[in-house]
């Protein structure tokens, strides 16, 4: 074998890339598949158990209230507005705007958590009442953990940025964080429909 030959010089390639070009994007996507599957399995179990009952919620269990869960769901959707601004700021590599929108997003995510805690109270059942209660709680709680994780991640970014530890590589990471943000907020819409609307329709 003769000496190797350079056919490609990588030195001019960029170090910071966004979206599907970045590794973190693929990691985020993978975990979205995992968590989406988990929610789908819990939702299917809810439907499967439903078929064992004549009435759903079963006789003796009052249906969940609609008001708080709907407010909470709408708030989740609305929180995508600041998240979009955050993604824009990160793409523009605008440090100041990033700091501002990170704080806004952290506050929003804290709002999610508070609303969800109220929402648990308006389920009007306990997880150990019957299979209905178990299924409702499982779905709501599983999604709650995703909200908590997203809040923690956003909070961490906020602290990193506010304390002056931000690096250029964090900009694409923030864009990926917003992808996950959209996922956790939007994925709740079908769950909300399943838990709070569908039983009233059928």
């Amino acid at each position: 074998m003769s000496a190797p030959r350079t056919v490609y010089d990588a030195s001019a390639l960029p170090e910071v890339v966004y979206g599907s070009k970045s590794l973190a994007f693929w990691g985020t996507l993978g975990f979205m598949v995992v968590e989406g599957t988990t929610l789908a399995i819990l939702a299917s179990s809810y439907v499967f158990l439903w078929s064992n009952f004549d009435r759903w919620p079963p006789a003796g269990t009052s249906p969940p209230s609609l008001l708080v869960p709907t407010i909470s769901m709408l708030f989740l959707l609305a929180s995508n507005l600041p998240a979009r601004q955050l993604a824009k700021a990160a793409r523009a590599k605008d440090l100041r705007a990033c700091k501002r929108w990170l704080v806004a997003c952290t506050l929003c995510s804290a709002g999610w958590i508070v609303l969800r805690l109220l929402e648990f109270r308006s389920l009007n059942t306990r997880w150990d009442d019957n299979a209905y209660g178990s299924a409702v709680w499982a779905l709501a709680f599983a999604h709650f953990t995703l909200l908590a994780v997203e809040m923690a991640e956003t909070l961490l970014f906020t602290l990193v940025f506010l304390t002056g530890h931000a690096e250029e590589k964090h900009f694409p990471d923030i864009v990926d964080d917003v992808v996950y943000w959209v996922f956790v907020t939007v994925v709740w819409v079908p769950c909300w429909f399943l838990l709070f609307v569908l039983p009233r329709l059928i």
């Binding site: 074998m1 003769s2 000496a3 190797p4 030959r5 350079t6 056919v7 490609y8 010089d9 990588a10 030195s11 001019a12 390639l13």
Partner: peptide, 10 residues
């Protein structure tokens, strides 16, 4: 091929 092409510049 015998000249074993590679990438450099990392």
């Amino acid at each position: 091929t015998p000249d074993a092409p590679v990438v450099t510049g990392l």
